[in-house]
Every structure is written in structure tokens, then in C-alpha cells.
Nucleic acid binder design. Structure first.
Lengths: 200, 200
DNA sequence: GGGTAAATATGATTGGGGTCATATTTCACC
DNA sequence: GGTGAAATATGACCCCAATCATATTTACCC
């Protein structure tokens, strides 16, 4: 998952172009029409829904090598969520028609793409079940595990690159609840807090 | 969505076989290994997670023409959820290797399959957002809308083929809460209750 | 190093859905 | 048409996360 999903060379050969965006920039917006395949090269992207009150729900945190915003390329419906640069980012953009050309002419890419969708669906299945039935402690633990696994299976605890607010925005809990729960997990030795940052 | 996703003839030509299952039968179980592509021909299938306490979380209700349980065919991991016949069913089963053969030799089928995954992901995005932030009323309304749309866009209210318990198992609420909420929706004229059954 | 915004922390209070108990209705089946 | 199981209904009470208010720590920048 940490290696590029489709190699940069391949994308470039089909006409993809690099684009830089600054931290906080909106890459595309929920409800809008789409004509690009996006793949993150560097940085991090929040793929989020924002409700009327301005509250965010983070669907996925996109890491380098992953694609995002690809639904509309398949069903011609609007974007299901907005993409916001969580950091300064470099991304690759490939036009819809070229993207389809690429899938059509290369079975392995198409198949790998399908695999990515399946892994996303698995994650959603898992999350949904957690959100539906579990207490804050389990919800948060599940998220921590997921985002740890993404970084390879290094067993050593390392600094979590998510704020309490972001964890809240992924689990449907409130910041205060996340803070209190993480405190509890710390007291139980399930994770470490150093200068307020979580090590897991 | 109501038409068969891959035509029966096509599936049969690749060696698929029919199978009947009775209401309540387990078709496959969460955590198990998979070697078949399944497509529902007749009846209805609950695709669910069951937790330690025996509570179900319904991920999707499968309608005729839809496939289910296809994740393991792409990533060789176990089933993400169990499939239970919600009614007497007829299904088509295609062996994994033949399924892959079919995708490889027919771009359109592969593409359509990808489209199905995308539509599932959209549904999951929607559901997750709802579960995370909304009150029972909105959660239930969202589910009602989704399962109404599946049956074509007939605007006339028709009988909902979901029990209160099943709605609870999809939204992470308790039966009593669903019952009370549906009552409220009825009082507000958002739906009708006749002999205890919901018309929407 | 001092200033400042963001992130983390913590207490007090509240409210909404969960839980439990029990009743009533619906419907399939003989 | 009577019977029993499943589904629906309803009240009373409770608990836990949300809410609100405020304090403290961390980190970044001139």
C-alpha cells in the first residue's frame, strides 16, 4: 500500500501531469463534476464530507501512491466527497479519457485498480461495523490499527500523524471524548503519550 | 440495478451453476476462504457481520441480479462478512478461476464489475457519514431512500420489505428506537404505517 | 526568548438513545 | 376461525457521550 499503485512512468506515458497544491487547498469538491484521475505523489490528502455545520467526516486519509476521487470516472455522478490537502502535496492528474484508455489497454492495471476498490470496501465494511456497535475505545483502536498498518507492519510504536480532532472526524466522536479515551488507553498501557502526541 | 449485472447466459457459458438455498441458510461465513463468485437470481440475501453477542450488522441487502462476496476473489483474504438467505433463493455460482478468465477476456464485464464496486463504495461513503453524525431520524430516512431507489424510481409509496429489526441492524440503532422514530415519521406524514407495515 | 494560535486537557451538566419489562398486534398455518 | 410465534408498540429508568466552559500545554515564528 505504501508503494505507488500505478507507477509514475506509466501515468506519465498516458499523459498525466504533475500538480502542486498547498496545505489546506481544496483539490475538488463534493457534488462537483469530475474529469481527472488523481494519484498522490507526495504529502497527504483528506477525503472528507463537510456537513451544514461545517463539521468534517474524514472518509479516508490518502497516503502517497494512492488514488482518490475516482468514483465519477465510472458512473458519471458527482464527487462523493471533497479532497483537501492536509499538507503541501504533489499529485498526478490524468484526464478521464486517457485513464479509460489506460484501463482498456492494460488488464493488469485495471485489475490492480479493482483490487484497490476492494481494499477500500473492506475498510468501509470494517469501519461501518465499528461505528454501528462499538464504544469509543474500540472505535478509536480500530482506526489506530488501520492507519498503523498502512505504514507497513513495523511493530514499533511510532508517532501518530493524526490529531485528536481528526480521529474524532473519522469515528464520529467529539474531540473531548477522543482525548479522554486516548488518556484511558494510555493509562492502560495500550499506547504512549509524549508531549501530547500519540505513539502507537 | 434491478437488471442482472452479468447476464445469466454469460455466466453459464463460463461454467456457472445454479444453486438453491433455503431461507435462513448460511451461504458463506465471515472469515472463511472463498473460491466462488456469487450472483443472486431470485430471493434476497443479507450480507452481515455478526458480533460476539450475536447482534447482526447488515452491510448490504442483496437483490436479484447483484453479486456478493467478491472481495476475496481479488485479494485472497477471507470473507469480510457472512451471507445469509433472507428468503428462499436461487443463485449462480462461478468458480474463481473461471471468473478471472471471464474478466480477462471481456473488458466490458470487467468494467461493469468495477462500476458495481464503485456504486457500493458510494453507498458506504453515504452510510458512514450518516452513522457518524446524524440522529436516528436522518439515519433511517437515508436507509429508506436507498432501498426505495433500488426498486426503481417509482414515486408511489410501496410496502417496505424490511423489518424494524433489520433497519436497526443497518443503522446501528436499537429496535425500540427504530420503532419510535418510524412512529414520529408517520405522525409527520413522511411515511405511512398500515397494519404495522411501513409504506414509503 | 517572548508572543500567539492550535492542540490538548479537564470539570460540570445534560440529554438522547439504550435497556428492560411488558403489552398488543399481525400473520401464517392447521 | 382459533392458535402461537414473530413483529410491533410503549412506558420507566439509566448511562454514557455530547455539550459548554475554561485552563494548560505545545509548537511555531519573528
Amino acid at each position: 500500500m505504501s508503494t505507488a499503485f500505478i507507477s509514475e512512468e506509466t501515468l506519465l506515458s498516458y499523459g498525466a501531469t504533475y500538480k502542486k497544491v498547498n496545505k489546506g487547498d481544496l483539490i475538488f469538491m463534493e457534488g462537483g463534476a469530475a474529469c481527472f484521475y488523481y494519484q498522490l505523489v507526495e504529502g497527504r490528502v483528506r477525503w472528507v464530507n463537510i456537513n451544514e455545520d461545517g463539521r468534517e467526516f474524514i472518509q479516508v486519509m490518502i497516503e502517497p501512491g494512492e488514488s482518490f476521487g475516482e468514483f465519477p470516472l465510472f458512473d458519471d455522478q458527482p464527487y462523493a466527497a471533497s479532497a483537501i490537502a492536509d499538507d503541501d502535496c504533489v499529485l498526478l492528474r490524468l484526464h478521464k479519457t486517457n485513464f479509460h484508455q489506460m484501463l482498456r489497454s492494460n488488464y493488469d492495471i485495471h485489475f490492480n485498480f479493482t483490487r484497490l476498490l476492494v481494499s477500500r470496501l473492506r475498510f468501509k465494511f470494517l469501519t461501518l461495523r465499528e461505528l454501528a456497535y462499538n464504544n469509543p475505545e474500540q472505535r478509536i483502536s480500530t482506526m489506530l490499527n488501520y492507519y498503523k498498518r498502512l505504514r507497513g507492519i513495523e511493530q514499533k510504536p511510532c508517532k501518530l500523524h493524526l490529531t485528536r480532532q481528526q480521529l474524532a472526524d473519522m469515528t464520529g466522536l467529539r474531540v473531548e471524548t477522543v482525548i479522554r479515551t486516548i488518556r484511558t488507553l494510555h493509562e492502560r498501557g495500550r499506547l504512549t503519550i509524549q508531549r501530547g502526541k500519540v505513539f502507537y
